Amino acid sequence: MKKVEFSPSLMTMDLNKFKEQITFLNDHADSFHVDIMDGHYVPNITLSPWFIQEVRKISTLPVSAHLMVTDPAPWVEKLIDINCEWICMHVEVLDGLAFRLIDQIHDAGLKAGVVLNPETPIDTIFPYIDIVDKVTIMTVDPGFAGQRFIEGALDKIVQLRELREKMNYNYVIEMDGSSNRKSFKRIDAAGPDVYIIGRSGLFGLAEDIEKSWEIMNRDYQEATGKVLV
């Protein structure tokens, strides 16, 4: 059985403990998830390519940038400039841009992902599903931490797994939103490859990041019967 991966969402980390938390997670997590919001696609403004560069001064883990922006093109260029390993764009703003931006990311030797809001059906990405490297399913509305878990969105993860097997596609399936003790069992049943974990699943569990990771590991094991490696 393939090991699932855990990608901490750095929007929810304690920035007062930036070095401590990044250093610890560098040895335990599989990648970092960085939300970039422009204040238009969603009302918040959060992290940036500069933040990714600061993370890289401490960590060797790959970084996945989640673009919650109305115009992804200039952001893609900035992320290519810093060689961000994964660049993930919302399908809701990709009409007329998808092939050009995916090709641009691939031409730079990087990986292209697409992100679907809870109400966005997977057939939206069928025109280019064969060339994307990752599909992220939102199980909360985008733009805010701490929202309620939208369980119905998990059905899309199951559909994507079945489609990947049937068509021999190569994309990674990721879930984003309220991944924690209460939802681990339901998420595990859907079967994503990557869990994005934020405040409720990791950073808010204890003051110390090592203790938080231990609690998360225990919560996951109790819910699924599986142990994180």
Rank of each mutant, 00 (worst) to 15 (best):
E165Y: 03
E174L: 05
P74D: 14
K185C: 15
Q221V: 02
K226E: 08
E151H: 07
F6Y: 00
F126I: 12
Q221A: 10
N44P: 00
N26M: 15
M175L: 11
R164T: 10
K182I: 10
M167N: 08
P74A: 10
D14S: 11
Q104V: 07
G39Y: 09
L97Y: 11
V227R: 04
L116D: 14
V135T: 00
Y195L: 05
E174D: 13
V135R: 00
E222A: 03
N168K: 05
G191V: 15
E77K: 14
H106R: 01
W86T: 12
K156Y: 13
A73P: 04
L163E: 08
D107L: 09
E214V: 01
M175C: 12
S48D: 01
L163I: 08
Y195F: 15
P43F: 09
L160E: 07
D95C: 05
L116I: 15
L101H: 05
V63Y: 14
N117Q: 04
V69I: 12
A190S: 13
Q53A: 10
I52Q: 00
I131T: 12
R181Q: 15
K17W: 11
H33K: 07
Y171K: 05
L67V: 06
D176F: 05
P121V: 00
G96V: 11
K57M: 11
R56W: 10
Q104I: 06
S212N: 01
Y128H: 15
V76A: 13
Q147T: 02
L94S: 10
A223S: 13
F149Y: 03
V93I: 08
R181C: 06
T60V: 07
I22N: 13
D81A: 15
P192L: 13
P192S: 13
V76Y: 11
H28T: 07
K166V: 08
G198T: 02
Q104G: 12
T12N: 09
R181E: 09
Q159H: 02
R218K: 05
T46H: 02
R164Q: 14
D71A: 02
D176T: 04
F203Y: 06
I105E: 06
G113A: 09
W50S: 01
K185F: 11
Y220T: 06
Y41G: 11
D107P: 04
E20V: 00
L154D: 15
A190H: 13
M138G: 08
G113D: 10
M138S: 14
K185G: 11
G96E: 07
E151S: 14
P192G: 05
F24N: 05
P62H: 11
I58N: 04
E54G: 04
I87T: 12
A190Q: 15
N16H: 07
S9C: 04
K166Q: 13
A65P: 14
L202V: 05
D176V: 02
G146K: 04
K156C: 14
V42L: 03
G204K: 03
N217H: 00
S48E: 00
K78I: 13
N44H: 05
D95V: 13
D133I: 03
D141V: 08
I80T: 10
N26S: 15
K156F: 13
A189C: 02
I173H: 14
Y41K: 06
T46P: 02
R56M: 06
T120K: 05
E210C: 02
P121C: 03
L10Y: 03
W75L: 08
V63G: 02
W213V: 10
I80W: 03
T70R: 09
L163S: 12
K19E: 03
D155S: 10
A29C: 09
F126G: 09
T124V: 09
L79W: 08
A189P: 15
S200H: 10
G225F: 15
